[in-house]
Write a protein that binds this DNA or RNA. Sequence first.
DNA 1: CTCGTTACCGGCAACGTTTGCATAAAATTA
DNA 2: TAATTTTATGCAAACGTTGCCGGTAACGAG
Lengths: 341, 341
Amino acid sequence: MIGPHQVTIKDIAKRLKISVSTVSRALRGSTDISQDTRQLVLAVAEELQYSPNPIALSLRDKKTKVIGVIVQEIANNYCSSVIAGIEDIAFKMGYNLLISQSHEKIDLEILHARLLASRRIDGLLITISNETINTDHLQEMIDRGIPVVMFDRVSDALQTHKVVVDDYKGAFDATSHLIEQGYRRIAHLTISKQLTITQNRLNGYLDALKAHRIAAKKEWIVYCDFEEANMKNEIRKLMLSKQRPNALFSSVERLSMLSLKLLKEINLKIPGDVALAGYADNPMSPYLNPSLTSVCQPTFSIGQNAAELLIELIESKKAEEKYTTIKLKTTLDVQESSLRK
Amino acid sequence: MIGPHQVTIKDIAKRLKISVSTVSRALRGSTDISQDTRQLVLAVAEELQYSPNPIALSLRDKKTKVIGVIVQEIANNYCSSVIAGIEDIAFKMGYNLLISQSHEKIDLEILHARLLASRRIDGLLITISNETINTDHLQEMIDRGIPVVMFDRVSDALQTHKVVVDDYKGAFDATSHLIEQGYRRIAHLTISKQLTITQNRLNGYLDALKAHRIAAKKEWIVYCDFEEANMKNEIRKLMLSKQRPNALFSSVERLSMLSLKLLKEINLKIPGDVALAGYADNPMSPYLNPSLTSVCQPTFSIGQNAAELLIELIESKKAEEKYTTIKLKTTLDVQESSLRK
DNA sequence: CTCGTTACCGGCAACGTTTGCATAAAATTA
DNA sequence: TAATTTTATGCAAACGTTGCCGGTAACGAG
């Protein structure tokens, strides 16, 4: 086994009996150097398989070429697909990714933000946890000079670039579709009240009802937390109530999937007894039983856009005075679960 | 906006008019310091929100507390779930993750390995691409002092810790199950010949046939590459042949899913015309139409085990002389797609 | 009163790299 | 040939941190 010594600029210098500064200049192509020595240095560097130590560079330049990413769960179709989009751009621009999970907990989100900051990341991409109301920890990042770009679950409280989808329209279209298929007793399954994203989806749902002169019912707007047991309970309670709805529109993938599971468990026919439509990012949705009508998000593109905005922010020295919010389109993939009864 | 100056040990020293070494000692709890100054330093550190610069530490200690991970695709149920397991352990042990994708290309795999090495990662976790035969690039890592642990797709060529599932048994059980359900004309869909993992699965399939005195047919062992079009073509060719099989056992998730899609497209009933069983890591498999009989892998646990082995390797100074291979169990989840005809 | 011990603290070097400044040699000009 | 410019190189500092070495008081013992 060869010694694990990483070859440095000093090794090259020693070998050629010249100074490290000369080697450095030769390597980075300064004009201030003779052709002869440049060739020599390059040759030895090649021979020794020299690669510059980014740690040393980081210490000097206070740039790490690393982007932090905080998501709720890596093992989640939406998140992993967005990350793939982020990685696509980051790799092309010479950045690496440091990925952390908040597991939907504000405490973990804050902890990881601090941890990433202490790692001296150049910028942060984040979709906030469902517990997150206060965004001081993110403002703190920005104040420390670490730009932040939000995607998916964003917060109005924070002034920065954001990448979202048109949540309102996605919900409006899905609900309208259910109505057009003849369903008028439509319930809405959703999560935490404080997220902008779920508020927008709720509004899309409500406005679609209103547009078709259907009165909304308070009992049919069901808030769940992220526990699977709780979600199932809420859905069960709703579906066993006297005045039960004949269609469900769910605002997040987990609720869409759990509805499908639970309705089968309690022997309700889909769409015979209850129609189903919801946000979902599972590529297998069209192959479920029944195939699931879903609002599809351009996840890869969301990641790409967010990464591009962030890197722009990182590399432009001047402080940004104008922040933009990119709003991408969703598509409604109509399948069996929402067809006319 | 506050200046983006990161507070250092020097700031504390200057504030208290003491030397940096004293501050350092106070911070890291050396006994060689008076209680008074220690308290003072701690107080100022708290007030200034000091956090040690890991870059500087890395430069000194040649340890980055960063683990590199190379997978084929992040946006893949198997990979993202393994990564979640890795992250679980890594976080607890104070490590961060640098994640790269090979996209099933050996060139990208080599490139990313080198890139991660130049980032001075403390260790590497990898599942190799389907193009990877030669593992010199990984041996190179080990020679440079960066321990490597392989998971899922491992290589016999490399001497190191490995974490796999019992591929042979998973395939044997699934094939046996199909036979017991009355199917005897069973084809096997798989990918690149050179992967140990697919070889083992192939052997499990073959031995299950042999155990039931069924002759294997060469034409029914179908190798596909990773192009969706190619996969579909191969399956179509197989299913439109004169002597077509009445059951398919696929060795990877993508093939399982694509079979299901394609068979529906060409109007073959599952399991009426063709039964289906295969490796799959999609939590929604039981809710597909038809629900899919699948070999399930303990993905999260694979990640945890791999991370534990790697960190052990990193933190034990002594060179390892014995490498272990952890083999985890799979479970066969029987669903509609493989039921008796 | 002197010597040795102890407790506490500062200085310096090192990790790998870049860069401004100084300097020597070479080339150019007067 | 002397003066000046150009070219090529070396030196040292800096980034933030730790560890070794050395030094200075205060203190107790003889």
